[in-house]
Write a protein that binds this DNA or RNA. Sequence first.
DNA 1: ATGTTATTTGTTTGCGTCAATCAAATAACT
DNA 2: AGTTATTTGATTGACGCAAACAAATAACAT
Lengths: 221, 221
Amino acid sequence: MTPQPANDAREPIATKSARRSQQERIEQSDRLMLDAAEALVLELGTHATTLREVGERAGYSRGLAHARFGSKEQLFMRLVERCLDNWFQELRKASKGKRGLSALVSRLDAVVEYALNYPEDARVLYILWFESVGVSSPMKERLGSFHRAARKDVCDLLRESIEENELPQELDIDAIALLITSTSFGVAYQWLVDAQSIEVETAVASVRQQILALLRSAQAA
Amino acid sequence: MTPQPANDAREPIATKSARRSQQERIEQSDRLMLDAAEALVLELGTHATTLREVGERAGYSRGLAHARFGSKEQLFMRLVERCLDNWFQELRKASKGKRGLSALVSRLDAVVEYALNYPEDARVLYILWFESVGVSSPMKERLGSFHRAARKDVCDLLRESIEENELPQELDIDAIALLITSTSFGVAYQWLVDAQSIEVETAVASVRQQILALLRSAQAA
DNA sequence: ATGTTATTTGTTTGCGTCAATCAAATAACT
DNA sequence: AGTTATTTGATTGACGCAAACAAATAACAT
């Protein structure tokens, strides 16, 4: 697909150098526009972000963002997927080779790692998600499926922990999974709303501690 | 508040009956427009809700909503305050005459009561709040202050419980308050996103149970 | 009737969307 | 290879619609 004559050395901004293939052209404009969209959402939120500004800030015309993505909504969907790539990568890294309770704890830590390693991505992801709760749309669908998947993952880890006798049989798995996922998003929400009075790192740390205490107490019972 | 001359049998649309005072006129159009806005936000979200539709659905012209509220943002602020009136009322009712741990539990139950007694209000309130996390605005300010107040209230109740020896001294009050408020909002969020797979009543009930377990385990320690 | 205030209507500005067009890259042909 | 045809990326202009503001009209007050 890319019979490149090994000439161009990966320049960040529109190079006027040699001939680029169509694929390179599109990859570059895609990336630049998604970067611009990310910056704009951070600055202004989804409401005030316009396709015009996305295109122009990326160094193109006002019309390209629409021509490429089709609509504002679809642009945001693409942006969400790009942000999720890093999230899932972080998640895999954190739970690598772990099982049961240990994997569950790592999962909580991955949230912090993600927020620290990709702060803009994290913020943008949460903003895009929170700001789409009202509309019924592909974005909301995506969001719902993400949550269901997250709850299911946590359930599986809890079940695994029970099988390995790390936790007692009687545990209400679904309830605890809901508690854990809700709390993660609740903290993220308060962090977005009131960044000054919430410090993600310590907040998640203490939440983690509380949840562990809860599980340990179940263990003791 | 509405000394209506017992003439109109709860008409949904602006009655053209007898003479009303200016104050009554305003109160009626205010109420009708806020009702319309609430319905529209539920149907379409904040993005697709237009001031034009708010005015026209309330039985007025396209321009009245803007003339009255000044902007879409301010209309939504008014709507939030109206929804909050019912919330605070529910909260007072629930914690009436209670103290300490008992008041804390009632506070959690009030969330459910509110969602059951004023389902539209609850949904709209959460939608308006979630959908404003991205913009820096009066709405976000209001939201932040609400969260700070909620955390502070919970802290106070926890402190009260400790003073009355319902809970041990060593409890990390701030951490638990954050956990509790985060969880409430996290559940609300998942409920909005994926109403089918989350049932508020049972969800909050189980969360309540988990939190009580946590506090009890602290008690035991 | 006259003043005041609620409500409507006219107008401007800016965004999302689409169609038409230009320009660059790839494919086809000689 | 060199030239032409076709595809595809990118720009520009136009239309509909909503937010916002101002001026006009209708409803109420005294």
